[in-house]
Design a protein around this nucleic acid. Structure first.
Lengths: 201, 201
DNA sequence: GTTAAAAATGACAACCCTGTCACATGACAA
DNA sequence: TTGTCATGTGACAGGGTTGTCATTTTTAAC
């Protein structure tokens, strides 16, 4: 947790430090990110940084929470999902939220990706939050199995794994090519495949 | 390319340096790997390293080529694939090769994974080799489409992307849990899903 | 205006890293 | 034996990093 001295700062100065953190943590993984770069970008002296934060982790945690709050605000604006929606509709709804968020705050995209590709212990712990999201997807599949919409022999966790990993794959690709359309088209094909399979019986 | 002085070394010394390189590049991504650690493990002085190699890339390239040769030797021992085999059989065959390789040289597993998770420019270039493997999978799907085994509307590249990304995902998981059986079981479920889909029509 | 506490500051120590280079050592030929 | 050339060697320069701390400056209270 940042120290009191940080919270006593003017909003402008807090903002400047936050922005510098986003900039650095969007460019480098947590382990490689440099406090030196951050203080340079924020225009604060070395000593001040340690007056405000315990260390790099402390700053990251602050930034992470701050972004989380912003995300909540954006998500709240997307229309709620019909509770009767099936798994595929729920997935599309989630994609819509993700795209909305990505459109409103594109500066956080790279940051999220870097977090996803980071396997340091510290970042691994933080990821717990993201995982809840996928646990919910798994539940939806189970419900659809009970409703007779999805084959009872389906392993919901494996399906969620598939969707998660291919999504990450295409998001990475999106950063290389910059084409959202390509990404959406491909993810559509993926969902078609998961629905119906590719083999002719 | 390593310098002549390196190739003039005794096999034992060459081996020691190779082993030290494997050790370090298995523990850290290319960018974070330290020449210091390597020379310490190999028991050679700093100056000698630069007498043998241009730099870290030079050593990595040597190690990579060396391992590639070992891999060829192992692959040659697996029985050849029936040329009439369909995509799914070919995939299983590839898995068999991969497992054979992984069983014979488990010390390289972590190295390969780290290479996969590395997005430095240098490693990206090297990955070109791996990609050929997936290009061949795509061709097999196209052939099966022509043979009437796979739905003509299937996007073969997307299917290969799915298989690639979920494989990487489970290989990472395998490093955490250490269970090959779990991995194989899950990959089996994945292939079933890709074949037949999960929805009830 | 004086004083005391809070905050800002940057020089510094301590620890990484890489690539070089002057010199030491060994091997082989004349 | 002596000279020459390839190789071995580690100290060093120059770059990076983090966390601390004595000192100055600001703020606020009296």
């Amino acid at each position: 947790m940042p120290k009191d001295t940080f919270y006593n700062l003017s909003d402008e100065k807090k903002r400047k430090i936050f922005d510098a953190a986003v900039q650095e943590f969007s460019a480098r993984r947590f382990g490689e990110a440099s406090i030196n770069q951050i203080i340079k970008a924020a225009g604060i002296p070395r000593g001040s940084f340690y007056q405000y934060f315990e260390d790099k982790e402390d700053l990251y945690l602050y930034m992470f929470a701050e972004i989380g709050a912003e995300k909540q605000a954006v998500i709240g604006q997307v229309e709620a999902l019909n509770p009767e929606a099936d798994f595929f509709e729920a997935y599309q709804h989630n994609m819509k939220i993700l795209l909305e968020w990505s459109k409103k705050k594109p500066e956080y995209n790279q940051l999220g990706l870097l977090m996803e590709m980071d396997d340091s212990e510290f970042i691994n712990k933080l990821r717990g939050v993201t995982n809840q999201y996928f646990a919910r997807m798994s539940e939806l599949i189970e419900r659809d199995k009970r409703r007779g919409l999805i084959k009872p022999e389906t392993n919901s966790e494996v399906v969620v794994d598939m969707i998660y990993s291919i999504n990450m794959h295409y998001i990475k690709e999106y950063y290389r090519t910059g084409s959202v359309e390509d990404m959406l088209r491909k993810i559509n094909e993926v969902m078609k495949t998961i629905k119906d399979g590719i083999i002719i019986r």
